[in-house]
C-alpha cells in the first residue's frame, strides 16, 4: 500500500467549495463556546460531528449527531465527540432533509485510470450497490445519462410529498467532481456521501471525504 492521506471532512469540502459545488452550511468549532456561537448562526436543527484528518466512516464510531434541536442535546453530543476524539474539531452543520441520499465518487483505478461514480447514497450504497461508473472526466450529457443509469433512478423524481430533484445541478456536481479528480493527480479518491436535497430539490453536499496520494 502506498502512503495516503485522508483529509478532514471540512478540508475535503473546501475542495468542493472551491470548485463551486454547493455544500451544506457549516462552521468549524474548536470548543463548546464556538459550537454555541455556530449554532446561533446556523439555527436549530443542526448536525454535530468531529472533523479530523484520517477519519473515515464517522457513523461507525457513533459520533454523528443528526437533528440536534436543543442546547442540552448539543452539549451532550459535544461531550461524546470530545470523549472519543479529544483532538477533533467539531463541525456544526445545518440539518438538510435526508429522506433522499445519493452518492457521487471518484476513484483512480490502476487499469481504467480516473473514474467518476454516481448512485444511491447513505447505507444503500453498500447494501444495494446501485451505482454506475464512467471514465473521468465526463461531459454534462454523460453525467445526465448516469442519473438514468441506476435502478433506483425514480428517487430523483417527484415521489410521495417530495419534489423532483434538480437534475441539472446534480449532473453538474458529477461533472465537477470528475474534473477535480481527473485534473489533480494527487487525488486518489473522493467520496461524497450523502448528497441530500433541500425543499426545492437542490442537491447539497452533506458529507465528503477526500483521499490524497502521497
Amino acid at each position: 500500500m502506498k502512503e495516503q492521506k485522508i483529509l478532514s471532512e471540512y478540508d475535503s469540502k473546501n475542495i468542493l467549495r472551491e470548485a463551486g459545488v454547493l455544500v451544506c452550511k457549516e462552521i468549524l468549532a474548536k470548543d463548546l463556546t464556538e459550537v454555541r456561537k455556530a449554532i446561533a448562526e446556523i439555527g436549530y436543527p443542526v448536525v454535530l460531528k468531529p472533523s479530523l484528518p484520517g477519519l473515515a466512516h464517522k457513523s461507525e464510531h457513533k459520533v454523528v449527531f443528526l437533528d440536534v434541536k436543543s442546547d442540552q442535546e448539543a452539549e451532550n453530543a459535544y461531550n461524546i465527540i470530545k470523549d472519543k476524539f479529544p483532538e477533533a474539531k467539531i463541525l456544526v452543520q445545518e440539518m438538510v432533509n435526508n429522506q433522499r441520499e445519493v452518492v457521487v465518487g471518484f476513484i483512480r483505478d490502476r487499469i481504467m485510470g480516473p473514474c467518476v461514480m454516481f448512485g444511491l447514497g447513505g447505507i444503500f450504497t453498500e447494501i444495494l450497490r446501485d451505482i454506475t461508473f464512467r471514465l473521468a472526466p465526463v461531459s454534462f450529457k454523460e453525467a445526465m445519462m448516469m442519473l438514468q443509469d441506476i435502478k433506483g433512478k425514480k428517487i430523483l423524481e417527484s415521489v410521495r410529498s417530495l419534489v423532483e430533484v434538480d437534475k441539472n445541478a446534480l449532473a453538474d456536481i458529477i461533472v465537477k467532481v470528475s474534473n477535480i479528480g481527473a485534473n489533480n493527480n494527487h487525488i486518489k479518491e473522493i467520496d461524497i456521501n450523502p448528497i441530500c436535497f433541500n425543499e426545492q430539490g437542490t442537491p447539497i453536499v452533506v458529507d465528503c471525504s477526500v483521499i490524497l496520494n502521497n
Binding site: D109, R110, M112, L135
Partner: peptide, 15 residues
C-alpha cells in the same frame, strides 16, 4: 489480461 472490476467495465461500455 489486466482485468478490472465489472462495474468499471460496465461503465466504460455504456460510455
Amino acid at each position: 489480461a489486466l482485468s478490472g472490476k465489472d462495474e468499471l467495465y460496465d461503465g466504460l461500455f455504456k460510455q
